[in-house]
């Protein structure tokens, strides 16, 4: 077979992601736009699976699709009834759109160019010893070849363990800081979203806890 399934799958999912992202900007109803964004996030989760980032792929769905976008939909649904389109669309001039697209093309060219300049890495290259993670090292040392197909598969199946170990050892401080950040965000959301200070303090709590 000339073309591998992986490339076909990549093409399909990446294509859907890009189309949905463009649709997000072009559809009338904000709810439809939010649904397009959910679609993009799910496509990205599938691509993460293809990149063997299993843990991140599931976290992407739990946090982004499951919590963040539900929060978005909650807010949008409070302000728009079905069939309503976003009135602020009317105040956008054609020149704005044209200018933005030109800017975006330049941005795309710059980013892609810098990615290209940084070099293309193929998967067949073996990682050097310095690049190996702490967990890969002992496995690679005991076996003859640095990383055979078998051992790298075994390592990939342990993906949540590896990411978790890293989070709780080398990156413990950033991890703890994010928990502090989340707490601050929760308090901030509760304070901002409640109508008047004494009333309904309890009901506003649901907003921030996600």
């Amino acid at each position: 077979m000339a073309i591998s399934f992986e490339i076909v799958f990549f093409g399909v999912f990446a294509g859907i992601a890009v189309i949905l992202a463009i649709m997000m900007l072009s559809v009338k109803s904000p709810v439809h736009a939010a649904l397009c964004l959910v679609g993009v996030m799910i496509m990205l989760a599938i691509l993460y699976l293809m990149l063997h980032a299993y843990f991140l792929s599931v976290v992407q769905i739990v946090v982004y699709a499951g919590a963040v976008m539900v929060l978005f939909l909650f807010v949008i649904m409070f302000f728009y009834s079905p069939g309503a389109s976003d009135p602020s669309r009317m105040s956008v001039h054609f020149t704005h759109i044209a200018g933005a697209i030109i800017l975006a093309v330049i941005l795309l060219a710059v980013i892609t160019g810098s990615f290209l300049l940084s070099g293309n890495v193929s998967l067949t290259e073996k990682p050097s010893a310095a690049q190996m993670t702490d967990i890969e090292k002992p496995i690679a040392e005991t076996s003859e070849a640095p990383l055979t197909e078998e051992t790298s598969r075994m390592i990939e199946k342990q993906n949540p363990q590896l990411v978790g170990r890293m989070l709780f050892t080398k990156y413990l401080l950033p991890f703890e800081l994010t928990s502090l950040l989340l707490l601050a965000a929760m308090v901030g959301a509760v304070v901002l979203a409640r109508r008047s200070p004494p009333a309904e303090a309890g009901s506003a709590g649901g907003d921030g806890n996600d």
Partner: peptide
């Protein structure tokens, strides 16, 4: 793909008023 999505997002930030 990442660059494309990033650029589309940038267009949205510039163009949208909502």
């Amino acid at each position: 793909l990442a660059a494309l999505l990033f650029s589309i997002g940038a267009v949205g930030v510039i163009v949208k008023r909502n």
